[in-house]
Design a protein around this nucleic acid. Sequence first.
DNA 1: ACCTGAACACCGTTCAAGT
DNA 2: ACCTGAACACCGTTCAAGT
Lengths: 180, 180
Amino acid sequence: VPRNRQDVDRVEKIEEIVRAGERLVRAGGYEALSFSGIAEELGLARGAVYWYFRSKDELFAACAARAIQTALSNPPKRTGYASRIIWAVDQLAAIRPIHTTLQDRARHSKPAATLLQGIQGTLTSQLRELLRPHVTPARLEPVSGAIFVFVQGLLALPLAERERQRHLRFLLRELASDRA
Amino acid sequence: VPRNRQDVDRVEKIEEIVRAGERLVRAGGYEALSFSGIAEELGLARGAVYWYFRSKDELFAACAARAIQTALSNPPKRTGYASRIIWAVDQLAAIRPIHTTLQDRARHSKPAATLLQGIQGTLTSQLRELLRPHVTPARLEPVSGAIFVFVQGLLALPLAERERQRHLRFLLRELASDRA
DNA sequence: ACCTGAACACCGTTCAAGT
DNA sequence: ACCTGAACACCGTTCAAGT
């Protein structure tokens, strides 16, 4: 006897699924994310989840997006540009496995590619705006580009917070101090 | 009637497996690498490959190691330090999917973690030696560290060869020109 | 529109049985 | 030591049948 939850808002049901998926993917990465796992947590049949996400790629992209959004919410105010960058990198580093998998899956998965592109786009432009007051106009583009690449490297490596910050501060001092 | 190939050298049989695996992993990444696929290519039963590799993690690490080794063989001689670094990065970028997956799997897979650690270790020290003549001693450590991180970023991003080289040349000029 | 339960294909892994 | 063939568990995906 199939249950029916047409009374419950569709958006709310999707929310439930993505929340469960975020937990799973935070705990054990892409592998730990499964239709079975989510169905179990929500008391549904495995197939039911397909009503909302047509593939594991879609499901993963949604859960990863939520995890990243969670990580980058509540940024601290009133701090210097270096601290702001470091904060964002630290937040993303805390969910490094998700970021690494996203990078890996983006090759073949359309939803993953789209998500990653969006993240990198906003990251790039925010970085440029943060750096603009501290770099001469002619150098703004190459400098912010280099720092973006550098940040991707920091996120790819399993560094301790201290090392990450040390590397980042060093590079910022080297590249972005021509306009104090 | 099980075939028997005790006459064939064990090392040679492992070589065959890893060669087949390298092809598969180059073509379609980690997903495309399977015991079934290798067995099929070699005309063996699926279970036979387990006699040589006890898990997919071990198999992947071996195939990835071979792919990387292949990529970095035959380095050009008599070129400047910048060109040497760029050459190595280009070679690794050509097998970016393998590198990305390796980074991703290293989290839970012991063989992947060991391989990645080895690669990064040699990369780090070679980088330091290449830079030594061009950087003041006090700056050698932070500079080569930063360039290493930067290279990881270049390998994480799906850049065109031109962009990759542009980024790398910019950073090298910024960080490593204090000892012409 | 939403959900169930069964089915299918594929895969990693194990293992008893063979040579 | 090496290999086969079958078995098991798990998973992504599909779908006819129900409400």
